[in-house]
Write a protein that binds this DNA or RNA. Sequence first.
DNA 1: CGTTAACAGTTAACGCTGTTCACTCATGCT
DNA 2: AGCATGAGTGAACAGCGTTAACTGTTAACG
Lengths: 235, 235
Amino acid sequence: MDSRDRRRAATLAEIKAAARRLLVAGGTAAVGLRAVARELGLTPPALYRYFPSHEALVSALIADLYDELTTALMDLQCAEEDVDLGARLYLLANGLRDWALAHPAEFGLLFGTAVPDPEGDGHEETPGHQAAMRFGALFKELVAQIWHQKPFPHPADDELGTVLVEQLTAESEHFHGMPPGAIYLSLNYWTRLYGLICMEVFGQLHWVLPDAAAYFEAQLFEIGGALGLDCPPPE
Amino acid sequence: MDSRDRRRAATLAEIKAAARRLLVAGGTAAVGLRAVARELGLTPPALYRYFPSHEALVSALIADLYDELTTALMDLQCAEEDVDLGARLYLLANGLRDWALAHPAEFGLLFGTAVPDPEGDGHEETPGHQAAMRFGALFKELVAQIWHQKPFPHPADDELGTVLVEQLTAESEHFHGMPPGAIYLSLNYWTRLYGLICMEVFGQLHWVLPDAAAYFEAQLFEIGGALGLDCPPPE
DNA sequence: CGTTAACAGTTAACGCTGTTCACTCATGCT
DNA sequence: AGCATGAGTGAACAGCGTTAACTGTTAACG
């Protein structure tokens, strides 16, 4: 019985591997159901034994990519025995950018898919979103550690406005009880990091900067400074 | 002869209007060649008299949307006789966000299309990119005016690094001769504004902030302050 | 050990997409 | 009036995601 299951799991992995091969080769549009089947020497309907639809296949691929990215970044920041949490955040940010630049197609599939439909219910059920939450938790966790080790100066509540303070305190438990001003700065860090990487990998920065590496590094120092981090040792 | 041309121009406008109707109704995926033809009561091949391909039709729509956005923002910032350039920038940024939130489908088509292929040659020829350049010039122009009216403090060259300084000075002519440090800050403004709006309209901010309006406003003040602008008068 | 049920996979087909070709018909120019 | 240009149609092709009916093989059970 398990031999049957193992075989099934194996082909399921092969399917996702083939889908990824097509993704890196030809971008998001190239990973079609028929194309995946062709890549494996199968007929299209065979894939419906493993995924209920083409979208489900892509969603599974997205979830896998999220997990791969998450573990890659965890390994990266835990590899060196740097207890310096600031250096860890620096490694995390740089690792995310490096991964995005090294795998632009995968990054485009994960973050570049425009989702203009609010869809009513806030929290969706797809495994991709769960994996995305795990990924986001990685960042929140590290920032919270940094805060609790050495609290950084942050704007006072009356500087942010009551509405924003209320919204930020609602997220306080995810940030291990940090005050709204500190969460605000942490959100800034994520927002700017995410925006920068998206603009660079999607080519929106190409029109002004041919190579955004130097700009990204300068920005990393700037946003790290807002969290009370010194420029980490270059070596 | 001109009556013939006028008729052609009219139907051409009708085609793009129908395409846009489908865009706002069903998002980017809904604007298909057959769907546009159906909307007009035409047969699909008829559209090939006006556009060489489906992609060309979408590109024309993109160019139109860019121009519409550009003129809308120009009208907005020139409507009031505010000579305060800072208030103009504030109007520009807020107008861009409002337009994006009011027309999420159009914004997704303009800025949400991931372009992971470097395509070798830097400057493409499509009218969409030309319109995008006109749009970018709007921002650069205004920032340059702000700088020349009241230069704001900016990082020195040695703080940015030689590589970044060199890249920024290459863009100096587009910014009317501003020094690298000032261009750096201007680039920051655009980067953060763009990243914020993209994250909000694409729902990436929904997971932490249900309504990002307050956060956006706070960020506007912050990035405006970096350009030497005071918080503009709330009323 | 033989029977049976579950499962992987195939073939054929449907409706959809963008695109092309051959054709018709009306309009405007000479 | 005659002709040519061009708008528009109809039929068709390849490819897409998807479904239904069918064929083997393989594991489990009396």
